[in-house]
């Protein structure tokens, strides 16, 4: 079953038509990237999948979207967001301890047992490669970590609620190149268990990490397919212009 399918999806910010008739399906346990020039609607499309756009006044969504076969608006938004989680552009841990950051989600969802939380924290930190470094520093405030560690911690905080889909909006744009490479390796690890959709401005990154790729322009999904074929033989002229750098 597809992880995400959208048919005739439109998103409006008030009168502004931000996503235009997008039809796409995202395969499970793979990395799908969304590329395109600034303002083309990548973030908007991504945020549609966990209904984060609904928090913005005046947003209207039409069309059919299903997450693992379940209609996007067919279930309670809180359980949907639990299944479809998000990593943001800037590392944004809470000003709490490492432990409390990771335990935040499980606590919100009702896990209060200390031992259970300990296990979740250990498991989530291990999954993002932070356990060895931080297992003795769990009480340390998260803001004292490096940028890369903070972003990994944000991954861990998300994994702690056991989502199925990970949405990432330019997750490496605040990191240096070495950290970026390591976080990309982490994504390769994570895709064994999770479906990942990543928005990136960096075409090399899209080429490196993703199996599938979508190119967006002015709210339209111009082309969608295997990443290698998008980059080697794009079928649309506009895609070709963009990836060869003839676009802004």
């Amino acid at each position: 079953m597809e992880a995400i399918t959208a048919r005739g999806l439109n998103v409006y910010y008030g009168g502004f038509h931000a996503i235009k008739d997008v039809t796409v399906s995202v395969a499970p346990r793979r990395i799908t990237s969304l590329i395109g020039p600034s303002g083309c609607g990548k973030s908007t499309l991504l945020r549609t999948f966990n209904r984060m756009n609904d928090l913005i006044a005046g947003v209207r969504v039409t069309g059919d979207v299903e997450i693992f076969g379940r209609p996007l608006y067919g279930e309670d938004v809180h359980s949907l967001r639990r299944r479809v989680g998000m990593v943001f552009q800037r590392p944004n841990p809470f000003p709490l301890s490492v432990y409390d950051n990771v335990a935040h989600g499980p606590r919100v969802h009702g896990t209060t047992n200390g031992k259970e939380l300990d296990e979740i924290v250990a498991r989530s930190l291990s999954a993002v490669g932070l356990w060895e470094t931080l297992k003795d520093r769990l009480r340390e405030i998260a803001l004292s970590l490096s940028g890369e560690q903070q972003q990994r911690l944000c991954f861990a905080r998300l994994l702690a609620v056991q989502p199925e889909v990970l949405l990432m909006d330019e997750p490496c744009s605040a990191l240096d190149p070495i950290s970026t490479t390591r976080v990309e390796e982490l994504m390769q690890e994570l895709k064994k268990d999770y479906t990942i959709v990543i928005v990136t401005h960096n075409m090399q990154q899209a080429a490196r990490v993703s199996e599938d790729c979508g190119f967006m322009l002015l709210g339209e999904l111009v082309e969608f397919g295997r990443t290698d074929s998008i980059f080697t033989k794009p079928s649309d002229r506009r895609t070709e212009d963009y990836i060869t750098g003839r676009y802004g």
């Binding site: 966990n50 984060m52 928090l55 809180h78 359980s79 949907l80 967001r81 639990r82 989680g85 998000m86 943001f88 800037r90 944004n92 809470f94 000003p95 935040h104 989600g105 606590r107 919100v108 969802h109 944000c154 905080r157 998300l158 609620v161």
Partner: peptide, 26 residues
């Protein structure tokens, strides 16, 4: 910061949980 609310909401917290756990304490 708005990001606290966004993160909490994106983890599936209800509005009330967002307010009590991720906004009020700060």
């Amino acid at each position: 910061p708005t990001s606290y609310r966004d993160v909490a909401a994106s983890l599936g917290a209800t509005r009330w949980q967002v307010v009590t756990k991720s906004v009020l304490p700060y």
